[in-house]
Design a protein around this nucleic acid. Structure first.
Lengths: 232, 232
DNA sequence: ATTAGTACTTATGTACTACATATAAAAGTA
DNA sequence: TACTTTTATATGTAGTACATAAGTACTAAT
């Protein structure tokens, strides 16, 4: 009898390499409260000796931390603790082609959730200029636009919304999610049409209320939510 | 005359190390459409020769990709293309102590946006058992609870909300944001009290509408939004 | 013939050495 | 004191050597 069935669900024990362990130890070390941005760390030789590994292994671990932006290293000076760019590593990994369907769906959904949650920030932060910008984006579009144009207008409009929030992290985050969105929407069922256009949303943002905006946005995004159902 | 003034705003040219460049080249290579998960990559020797760098440098770059979960490497077999864990790298970097105030504020805000946007998913996905779970969490709490207890109840309640969405990515994301939230809330002005309790939210979720829920959640989160204003 | 066991091969993992390179810090100079 | 030169040092890169695990092929046994 084959034992394959018994093996199901039994992952092989993850044998961590030294680089993995050193990375963990270093991260723990860097997270110490006493340390602050700009502090100089021990040299590679000192660290590798302290940890009992070759400089080689240590450098592999350091290379990871450098990529994450946790440390920078200057010649002669040594290594310095830095503020990481929290979205940088995210960016490196966000390739829709490499994602399983569940993750893809989850991220798509995440963006919809964000969009619905924006209302409050928008109404607090919007300025007359923002409204004008949005109106310009909307006016540019004509019904006879082809797909490429339609998509770029879509991106411009929603991108501008995130910009209004004044939250750079949020905006960068949504930009990173665009490929995911794009990837999913390609299979979209065009027959499902929303009754709320970008123009309608701008009007609500200008003269309406938060509550109306949420309802409008929900309706505007309905085709996407429909798409989500089909993905399940 | 000193030249420091002239140098202001002139960042030093980022001299990328070979490991940096190899990392980029490898990522480009891995993102090729033809490649699919499970494909075996060339050996380290082949890659280092093809790129014209030492195996050492190549391994530093590979070490980064391994950390990101883009590749795995097995002895003898070689390296294999894998599906990255998109949030894994995020986790490594999310230490509130190392964030500048703006980022901190942005992430705090991001979570509030998420929370407000949850309503739709919640009303689509909620089950009677979910409601019961929430009620249990609420019932456990007593007004005389100390801070630690209050916080853990807070986490349990909002965590459960994310769980109801059935979106694992979303849930993990919010868990990762907890330290940020915690860090910021410590300075919170307790005098600002919300009129909507967890209990109220559960009741709305059970018998109310999406719209009511959003309004309720907004009021529930009001102390946090107030806090945000003070941070600016 | 299938299975079990063995030796062999190979790609990754780790260590060590050597030298290039940039640069902070010290020493020297006007 | 201000400027230049030298020196020392930490990182960056290359190369060699060997350990270790794991496919592969071959052999022996039931």
């Amino acid at each position: 009898m084959s034992t394959t069935k018994l093996k199901k669900g039994l992952e092989p024990i993850a044998v961590n390499t030294r680089a993995d362990m050193v990375e963990i130890r270093l991260r723990e070390y860097l997270n110490k409260k006493e340390l602050k941005t700009g502090d100089v760390l021990p040299t590679e030789m000192e660290l590798s000796e302290a940890l009992g590994v070759s400089r080689n292994v240590l450098r592999e671990a350091l290379s990871r931390l450098r990529m994450l932006g946790l440390v920078e290293s200057k010649k002669k000076r040594g290594m310095v603790l830095t503020n990481p760019d929290i979205l940088g590593s995210f960016e490196r990994v966000l390739n829709p082609q490499r994602m399983d369907n569940d993750t893809l769906k989850n991220l798509f959904e995440l963006r919809l959730v964000l969009e619905l949650g924006l209302a409050d920030l928008l109404f607090v932060r919007k300025t007359p200029k923002d409204i004008k910008d949005l109106e310009a984006i909307v006016k540019n579009g004509k019904p006879e636009d082809d797909d490429v144009f339609r998509v770029s207008r879509e991106i411009a409009f929603h991108g501008k919304l995130y910009e209004i929030t004044g939250n750079d992290t949020l905006k960068r985050f949504q930009i990173m999610l665009l490929p995911v969105f794009d990837y999913v929407v390609k299979n979209e069922n065009r027959s499902v049409k929303s009754n709320v256009t970008h123009g309608d949303l701008v009007r609500i943002l200008k003269d309406g209320t938060k509550e109306e905006f949420v309802v409008g946005m929900r309706e505007h995004l309905r085709p996407h939510f429909e798409l989500l159902k089909n993905l399940k």
